[in-house]
């Protein structure tokens, strides 16, 4: 697993101040800390490796150009992911994938009951199942971008509801409902895989 270089808030603010003076080295430290995470997010959003690499570069170029406009009201992470999210949306629109208009109904059958809890699985077995990583990636690709974004930001990037609401520009309640639906979809997907795989609970 790629190591995450964490920056504390004080260091982050100092680096931002240096970046505003066009300090390239300081920006390099910010890139070191965030490039893998931003790339991971963009990769999962666009589902195209070449495009993801290109868009991630664009994220950092845009961030460097507009660092003077970063007011510090949100964290640097939120700000970077917001830029990444907007660029992914733009790219998808240009490619006519129209993520904003992908309905949640397309992911869910209204007559099918929703699973609220996922306690029927054995966490130990799930943890040791190496194939599940691929299944999770597949499930991510199968859901609408609205659900995917919230699921990645919350469960992968450990962002809070409010932080996601700022990043995606929707109310907190919408973040929660999308997260619930995304997890329910993922559960269903994994459930189908587990049911079809002998020897796995």
């Amino acid at each position: 697993m790629a190591t995450r270089r964490q920056i504390d808030v004080a260091t982050e603010l100092a680096l931002v101040a240096q970046c505003r003076r066009q300090d390239f080295e300081a920006f390099g430290k910010i890139m070191d800390a965030y490039q893998a995470r931003v790339l991971g997010f963009v990769r999962r959003m666009l589902r195209n490796e070449e495009e993801a690499l290109d868009v991630t570069q664009e994220v950092f170029i845009k961030a460097f150009q507009s660092m003077s406009r970063f007011d510090g009201r949100s964290t640097l992470r939120t700000w970077l992911f917001r830029i990444a999210y907007n660029l992914c949306i733009d790219r998808s629109r240009r490619a006519d994938r129209s993520p904003e208009f992908t309905s949640l109904e397309s992911t869910f059958d209204e007559n099918e009951p929703l699973e609220f809890a996922d306690n029927r699985w054995n966490p130990e077995e799930i943890a040791t199942n190496a194939e599940l990583g691929l299944i999770v990636e597949e499930a991510l690709g199968s859901m609408s971008e609205k659900l995917r974004t919230v699921l990645i930001l919350h469960d992968k990037e450990d962002m809070g509801y409010e932080e996601i609401a700022v990043t995606v520009d929707v109310p907190v309640g919408t973040v929660k409902s999308r997260l619930f639906l995304a997890r329910a979809h993922m559960q269903k997907w994994i459930g189908n895989y587990l049911a079809a795989t002998p020897g796995v609970s």
């Binding site: 890139m31 609220f116 996922d118 990583g133 619930f180 993922m186």
Partner: peptide, 28 residues
């Protein structure tokens, strides 16, 4: 319901990002 959904966050947390290549960083 969100609190009871524990497996998916665990699986999502295990996903790898994969660091970009040095050539990519150099181009950036």
């Amino acid at each position: 319901a969100l609190e009871s959904q524990t497996i998916v966050p665990r699986l999502m947390g295990k996903l790898e990002d994969g660091a970009p290549s040095l050539a990519w960083r150099s181009a950036l």
